[in-house]
């Protein structure tokens, strides 16, 4: 007898999932400050670390964070990668149109790193420890895309 091959169908899901994520008061203040080209963080009263973007808790100290600080927009490149792929809708892996650079920026006086796109530097010239500065969009919308990228300072 012929071996059974199980058939499957792949219809397009007609359901549209809509989510409304409340950002909470910490992220709201961060977003609002983007409109003024400011980067805001919170400082832990116990370990003194400054976190950007801000959040409610320092996990290792079990402390609620409420001391706000405006942080510098310059720092150094702590880590980088050159992306050759992107995740498209449905997290499908696809080839990027052209390679692009992502960096983890260690802002001066901040203890967490900030993940951002890095521009105006050739991949071959990327070096850990390079000085970087924030570059803003010309027209600010009060969302995360306001802080456009980092580039060598």
């Amino acid at each position: 007898m012929e071996e059974l091959r199980e058939t499957y169908i792949t219809p397009v899901v007609p359901l549209d999932f809509t989510y409304n994520y409340r950002v909470g008061q910490y992220m709201e203040r961060f977003l609002n400050s983007l409109k003024d080209k400011k980067l805001m963080g919170v400082k832990c009263p116990e370990c003194g670390k400054v976190f950007v973007p801000p959040r409610m808790f320092c996990g290792s100290c079990n402390q609620k964070l409420d001391e706000w600080v405006e942080v510098a927009q310059t720092g150094m490149l702590a880590n980088f990668t050159v992306g050759h792929v992107v995740l498209e809708k449905g997290a499908r892996l696809a080839k990027a149109e052209s390679p692009y650079v992502l960096g983890l920026i260690k802002l001066d006086d901040v203890d967490s790193l900030l993940l951002a796109r890095v521009e105006k530097v050739a991949p071959a010239d990327l070096k850990k420890g390079m000085r970087m500065k924030a570059v803003w969009k010309e027209e600010l919308a009060g969302d995360y895309s306001d802080l456009d990228h980092f580039e060598p300072a």
Binding site: I9, P11, V13, L15, D16, F17, T18, Y19, N20, Y21, R22
Partner: peptide, 19 residues
């Protein structure tokens, strides 16, 4: 309030609905 509960529930039988 952050999602859609009816969609969430319908999701139980998504494959059946699709079929």
């Amino acid at each position: 309030s952050e999602g859609d509960s009816q969609v969430g529930l319908a999701g139980i039988i998504t494959p059946e609905i699709m079929t």
